[in-house]
């Protein structure tokens, strides 16, 4: 039942012979060898495997590789711009938006679509927007700040403070 499929990931074509049951995340990690996309829960709960399919954020552990034939796939490896990091990458760096980093690729790929649909989101919009992504370090405050920062950068607005907030 194996068959040869070609998937377009970050603009490059990857051809491999797979079974129909091969999950997209396994194709990305084990056939295209792009290991920036993570497998967390493997049950479409945690969002670590989030990628973009034709610009829409998706959980690649719940999609068959064969379903993605003919689509444009973007993973975290395809996020950076030609002249440097993507504003989201800069936002996560500047705001300490990651602790262990395991959820980060999924968080950023989800935030790409979030900011595209809503370039100036409120904190609530962001928290709803990343409700399908879990951070087990519970670093949500800085993730929200990072996405806000990226939004401001992409709009060309003044950048929000990256100073940590302390609660008395």
């Amino acid at each position: 039942m194996k068959r040869e499929i070609t998937l377009k990931i970050n603009g490059e074509e990857y051809t491999s012979t797979v079974e129909p049951r091969t999950l997209l995340v396994h194709f990305i990690r084990e056939h295209a060898m792009l290991t920036g996309t993570h497998i967390g829960c493997d049950t479409s709960s945690c969002g670590a495997c989030t990628i973009l399919i034709d610009g829409k954020s998706a959980k690649s552990c719940t999609i068959l590789a064969i379903q993605a034939v003919g689509k444009e796939i973007t993973t975290v490896e395809g996020l950076a711009l030609a002249d440097g990091p993507h504003p989201l990458q800069e936002g996560f760096k500047e705001n300490h938006g990651l602790h262990c980093g395991f959820c980060t690729p999924g968080m950023m790929m989800r935030a790409v679509e979030l900011l595209e649909k809503n370039p100036n989101p409120t904190e609530e919009d962001i928290r709803w927007g990343i409700s399908g992504n879990l951070c087990r370090c519970t670093g949500y405050n800085n993730i929200v700040k990072a996405i806000k920062y990226a939004g401001a950068k992409m709009r060309g607005d003044e950048l929000p403070s990256t100073e940590p907030e302390f609660v008395e």
């Binding site: 954020s57 999609i63 399908g132």
Partner: peptide, 12 residues
């Protein structure tokens, strides 16, 4: 819409 699973799942 807001209550079904999460945004990524609702995309598919």
């Amino acid at each position: 819409g807001k209550l079904i699973a999460d945004p990524q799942v609702r995309n598919f």
